[in-house]
Design a protein around this nucleic acid. Structure first.
Length: 476
RNA sequence: CGGGAAGUAGCGCAGUUUGGCAGCGCGCUGCGUUCGGGACGCAGAGGCCGGGGGUUCAAGUCCCCCCUUCCCGACCA
């Protein structure tokens, strides 16, 4: 293992090193592609499971749509095409011959899905349609970064159709709340929840809602999006249903997605100079036992105890690993598991067996203490929870201390440059003012509140009456 | 796609200026000693020098084309 650059000195270098050294992912042979290794994929699988359970609990079903679609199909919704066209890869050859009709590789599946919905939806009785799929998509990105922006990535995309505006908007918010639970309550990433300004909206949506987290370099990362599509796609793909009064109506839509980028968010929100720090819910291993011994006698004594401890913890549903590799000494293993961010390490040597104790080391707080075996085992679930809490508190403190309220254009222009972070100020809602700030600071509006509320003040750019309070920041 | 840097063993790099035996550190394999915070000794294995063309007696090194990665931009649901 090589030493990592420091978080505070070279964050991009730290990120790349930790992704590689912890065995999360690497670049694939084709431009912008990525190989996600088992340790990284396991984190994603946990996020997947947490989300999938909640999708099912809120009445959604999974399905599978194809990777390819005729380019014509993709082109039906004008805004959508305009937004995505530059990123779409097109298959022109197959079976050694040029195709009569080129096929687009999905950058997202609204087109495919609304085309199908036009056949699936006839009556108000068919609604709502609450479907989701787990899949990969491809977007021809100019510049890629492992997990954060790669040409191919995995995600889930939910696509629902409803009989009313109200119902679709409620669905948009319901799924945003599901995301909030997983991002905050599971991944321990505190977020600002809100809407996007019109310029940052999903191409084809009437409203885009999002969760914005702050990474360790104070830059913003959009963790997910939940879109209110209005009737844009139902009109483009002719999805009409007959209402109880016998009238044809266009369906109302939502779509929502969360991708493997969330793994990047976990890395960049919690990581420190020693490596990853993982919330226990997504940690591939939650507790690692490092046995310590010299002689064969000691080895068998220690390993027997280690097995017992593991079995007891596994019974409580905890993911435990005994690091019984003989070629590494304990100190090396400590460093490696810290790099990988495993929440709790148990050190177990002959002395501890004699004392009927375990040394319990917390990755988040770096605290290490001797605890009697039975207490350590019975209390492990709580220890994991408090480790999670410490992570969440730490991230919240960091974000709050890097979030500033401002009231003049000069303040943000100077402040973003010198301090980074999030800047909260009043905005008139005019794109001209938004652009002016962005051009001066490279910061964009990350969110405005879900519910418009009068900020009781004037726009920090033009001085006209404020519409809402916007949070600005430089983003990934 | 623009500006900059780079690609040589799994990782980090030297060698390229001035063409002439493919190197170093870590890691890896074997044996031994070690083992409570990144151990040590000895012996080994491992290379189409990113790819393709060219110049030359001779190319990691010079020339041309291409690919990939990183940083800064542009772009980015």
């Amino acid at each position: 293992m090589n030493k990592l650059p420091k978080v505070s000195e070279d964050f991009p270098g730290w990120y790349q090193a930790v992704v590689r050294e912890a065995g999360l992912a690497e670049n694939g042979p084709a431009r912008g592609s990525q190989i996600i290794k088992p340790f990284g994929w396991s984190i994603w699988e946990s996020i997947w499971r947490e989300l999938d359970d909640r999708f099912k609990a809120t009445g959604h079903e999974n399905m599978m749509f194809p990777l390819l679609m005729p380019t014509k199909l993709f082109e039906a919704e004008a805004q959508h095409v305009e937004g995505f066209a530059p990123e779409v890869a097109v298959v022109t050859h197959g079976g050694g011959e040029e195709l009569e009709e080129p096929l687009a590789i999905r950058p997202t599946s609204e087109a495919l899905i609304w085309d199908a919905y036009s056949r699936w939806i006839q009556s108000y009785r068919d609604l709502p349609l609450l479907y989701n799929q787990w899949c990969n998509v491809l977007r021809w990105e100019k510049r890629s970064r492992l997990f954060l922006r790669t040409s191919e990535f995995w995600w889930q995309e939910g696509h629902t159709a409803h009989a009313s505006r109200q119902e679709a908007w409620e669905e948009t918010l319901r799924m945003l709340e599901v995301y909030r639970e997983v991002i905050e309550d599971v991944c321990a990433i505190p977020v600002y929840r809100g809407r996007k300004s019109p310029s940052e909206r999903f191409a084809g949506a009437d409203e885009t809602t999002t969760l914005e987290g702050m990474m360790r370099d104070t830059k913003a990362l959009q963790c997910c999006t939940s879109h209110f599509l209005g009737q844009n796609f139902s009109k483009a793909y002719n999805v009409q249903y007959l209402n109880p009064d016998g009238e044809q109506e266009y369906a109302w839509g939502t779509s929502w997605g969360l991708s493997t980028r969330s793994v990047g968010a976990v890395i960049m929100t919690h990581g420190d100079d020693k490596g990853l720090r993982l919330p226990y819910q997504v940690a591939p291993t939650q507790v690692v036992i490092v046995p310590i011994y010299r002689s064969d006698d000691e080895r068998s004594t220690v390993m027997e105890r280690a097995d017992n401890v593991r079995n007891a913890l596994v019974k409580d549903g905890i993911r435990v690993k005994i690091d019984d590799r003989d070629q590494f000494r304990p100190g090396y293993k400590f460093a490696e598991w810290e790099l990988k961010g495993i929440p709790i390490r148990i050190e177990l040597g002959p002395r501890d067996v004699g004392n009927d104790e375990l040394i319990v080391a917390d990755r988040v707080t770096s605290e290490k203490s001797a605890v009697s075996t039975s207490v350590a085992v019975s209390g492990m679930a709580d220890v994991l929870k408090s480790s999670w809490q410490a992570l969440y508190d730490d991230a919240t403190r960091f974000r709050d201390s890097n979030t500033y309220d401002f009231s003049t254009f000069e303040e943000i222009a100077e402040g973003i440059e010198s301090k980074g972070g999030f800047w909260r100020g009043i905005w008139c809602g005019d794109e001209t003012c938004e652009t002016k700030v962005t051009e001066a600071t490279k910061a964009t509006i990350r969110t405005v509140p879900l519910d418009k509320e009068d900020p009781h003040g004037s726009c920090i750019v033009c001085g006209k009456a404020g519409e809402e309070t916007a949070i600005w920041g430089r983003a990934y």
